[in-house]
Design a protein around this nucleic acid. Structure first.
Length: 211
DNA sequence: CAAACGATCGGCT
DNA sequence: GCCGATCGTTTGC
């Protein structure tokens, strides 16, 4: 599959990119072991005016520094001391924009993902198993694809990068996209209601709470 | 140096 | 639905 070009990430409209990423493939590969999934849920975060963005007010810290670099790299941070949350940095250098990948629909390396998630070996075969829990939610995506904070800042165009994104096979019809308020940003004042969470309508892998 | 706080998840009621 | 886990980052004293 073809990788998304750097120009895709360099656009200034992070909300548009968050929509465009639905249907694209997120891939990680370690020691030739490939895991991937179709992106079915995203959220846009935009400095300086978005209170929910870690770089609100364009305040720079060591953690958020990758967001200030040019688009086409990873921003990964630790949440609640446990979860490694993967973001796609967008926009030209100096614009701290990012798209959080909240859920994927698994494509390749499903067994490996299940092991990384500490699922029982037979979980995926079990009748009535809630398979969507494998990669539904940003913490689950990070764990299933082995994306850790140590990779924060890595460029997808770097041949040594263990993570990158690929183009979608088919365009997603506009009426298959749902826009809703973002999850877990109750502290963000007037930004709480901004409809910057995007998901594929009716897709089982979209995380809770359902939009 | 101390302490509060998450862009969450999973288990339990 | 509610609640506890768990720790790096950030800020305040």
């Amino acid at each position: 599959m073809r990788r998304l070009k750097t120009e895709f990430f360099l656009r200034e409209n992070v909300v548009e990119i968050a929509r465009d990423l639905l249907g694209c493939t997120l891939v990680s590969e370690f020691d030739g072991q490939r895991t991937s999934g179709k992106i079915v849920e995203t959220e846009a975060y935009r400095a300086p005016d978005d209170r929910a963005c870690h770089a609100f007010g364009n305040r720079r810290t060591a953690r958020t520094e990758p967001m200030f670099g040019p688009g086409g790299r990873a921003y990964i941070y630790l949440c609640y001391g446990i979860h490694h949350l993967f973001n796609v940095v967008t926009g030209p250098s100096g614009m701290a924009h990012a798209v959080l990948i909240r859920a994927i629909e698994p494509l390749e390396g499903i067994d490996l993902m299940a092991r990384r998630r500490d699922f029982e070996p037979d979980f995926l075969q079990k009748k009535g198993a809630k398979k969507f829990t494998l990669t539904s939610g940003p913490g689950a995506v990070g764990k299933a694809l082995n994306l850790k904070t140590g990779f924060s800042g890595i460029e997808f165009s770097d041949p040594k990068s263990p993570v990158w994104l690929e183009e979608k096979l088919f365009q997603l019809p506009e009426n298959h996209i749902v826009a809703s308020p973002r999850v877990g940003v109750d502290y963000a004042g007037e930004c709480v209601a901004w409809p910057w969470r995007f998901s594929v309508k009716g897709n089982e892998w979209v995380s809770r709470p359902r939009p």
